[in-house]
Amino acid sequence: MSDAQMFQIRTVEAPRLPAPSSTTGVIGWMRQNLFSSIGNTVLTILGALIAWALIEPLIEFALVKAVWTGDDRTACLGADGEHIGACWAYVGDYMQQFIYGRYTTSELWRVNTVYGLFALLLVPLLAPSVPYKGINALLLLVAFPIVAYYLLTGLVIGDTVILPIVETAQWGGLLVTLVIAVTGITASLPLGILFALGRRSNMPIIKLISVIFIEFWRGVPLITVLFMSSVMLPLFLPDGVTFDKLLRVLVGVTLFSSAYMAEVVRGGLQAIPKGQYEGAMALGLRFWPMMYLIILPQALKLVIPGIVNTFIGLFKDTTLVLIVGMFDLLGMIQSSFADPSWATPTQAHTGYLFAAFVFFVFCFGMSRYSIFVEKQLHTGHKR
């Protein structure tokens, strides 16, 4: 028998076959992560049963048995007055107050303009591929606050009323929530960075001031800060000197959040190897160029989860302003319960469910974007 008869030599490359369907796609992921062993299979099934037991009543209440249209409470009552699903007709009727509070109805276009400008400037800044980031950041951080302030509060030059004055006492709902959250987030990050650098400073006075500031604000609850800034602070001011209540709340929330932000940033600074500092100094860089160009970019990248976690906590803590008489989204929902025209057994459940949904959308959006940023920046840690 010849060699050609004993061996079959392929002269053409064999076609490439796809991977087995059981190892790729959704099925492959489930086999690898959910059903990889008997124990994982049991836990997966048990977890699915528990999740369904919790989610099924929520779906039935919020969607299946919900009432979507109606003019008053009678639309959300059963035939014999029994409990039915969520009363979304009530939410629709109060939607304007939930978003704008008691802002003057004829001037709502001003709030909508602020919302639109904020989205128009924020989205390109967050998108990695959009150019001119510097100009965009300058417009968002410098020009936008000035324009938003005059749009929301009004503008009077001499005796000429360009925009009617709308007192902050008329603000409420999602407007107040976003104003407090965005201001606190924007202002607390740079303040936190400064106090974190101050706490690690070699200058005793700077370090002492930073430590006292951080420990003081971390040692008191936010409710106490809001109460002091709104109720007690005016007692210590000279006669005739006063500050707007919203301004006092913004200052209190910003200082409170900046103390926690300082500790998050300090953790990132301590994680940077000493060789990075020595290398920067060997290049002849002074303190601020070294921090701006070498240290802070690395430190902030390491603590992105902590920074975003602080932002999310701040966003949710805005609900505490109700204690000082400011009606944010949750406050407006609670105040709507006093309306007898929508008083039903499911009114409170529906209102709180709507508030939970709104807060979840914003907080989940921030968390997902932080994960996206981590993946974009942590290129050196990829395997």
Results as ranks from 00 to 15, higher is better:
residue 365 G to L: 04
residue 30 M to Y: 09
residue 93 D to I: 03
residue 128 P to Y: 12
residue 184 G to A: 05
residue 343 A to Q: 14
residue 301 K to Q: 12
residue 32 Q to S: 12
residue 120 L to H: 05
residue 93 D to G: 11
residue 379 T to S: 02
residue 38 I to W: 03
residue 367 S to G: 07
residue 206 I to L: 15
residue 143 A to T: 15
residue 143 A to G: 07
residue 32 Q to L: 08
residue 343 A to E: 13
residue 105 T to W: 06
residue 14 A to F: 03
residue 57 P to V: 08
residue 177 T to A: 12
residue 154 G to E: 03
residue 50 I to M: 11
residue 258 S to Y: 06
residue 378 H to D: 13
residue 243 F to K: 02
residue 23 T to P: 04
residue 58 L to Y: 12
residue 147 V to H: 05
residue 127 A to P: 01
residue 339 D to K: 11
residue 255 L to Y: 00
residue 310 T to N: 09
residue 293 L to C: 06
residue 63 L to D: 06
residue 128 P to A: 11
residue 62 A to T: 12
residue 106 S to T: 12
residue 202 N to C: 03
residue 27 I to G: 04
residue 259 A to E: 04
residue 207 K to H: 09
residue 116 G to Y: 07
residue 80 D to I: 06
residue 343 A to W: 07
residue 67 V to R: 13
residue 216 F to C: 10
residue 234 P to L: 09
residue 347 Q to Y: 10
residue 34 L to K: 03
residue 322 L to M: 10
residue 316 K to E: 13
residue 182 V to F: 13
residue 265 V to K: 02
residue 151 L to V: 05
residue 204 P to S: 02
residue 290 M to N: 06
residue 23 T to Q: 13
residue 370 S to V: 07
residue 130 V to M: 13
residue 311 F to G: 05
residue 11 T to Y: 08
residue 274 K to F: 08
residue 321 V to C: 01
residue 82 E to L: 07
residue 246 L to Y: 02
residue 269 L to Q: 02
residue 17 L to A: 10
residue 291 M to Q: 15
residue 305 P to N: 09
residue 20 P to Q: 08
residue 177 T to G: 06
residue 37 S to T: 15
residue 117 L to C: 10
residue 247 L to C: 05
residue 177 T to W: 00
residue 175 L to S: 02
residue 376 Q to R: 14
residue 221 P to N: 13
residue 204 P to N: 06
residue 196 A to E: 08
residue 27 I to E: 11
residue 143 A to S: 12
residue 357 F to C: 14
residue 268 G to V: 10
residue 354 F to Y: 14
residue 75 A to F: 06
residue 45 I to W: 11
residue 351 G to V: 00
residue 214 I to Y: 01
residue 8 Q to T: 13
residue 376 Q to N: 09
residue 340 P to F: 09
residue 253 V to T: 01
residue 327 F to P: 00
residue 205 I to N: 07
residue 186 T to S: 13
residue 225 V to P: 01
residue 297 P to I: 03
residue 184 G to D: 01
residue 59 I to F: 14
residue 5 Q to A: 13
residue 296 L to W: 05
residue 255 L to P: 05
residue 307 I to H: 00
residue 48 A to Q: 07
residue 58 L to S: 14
residue 76 C to W: 03
residue 96 Q to D: 13
residue 235 L to Q: 12
residue 222 L to A: 04
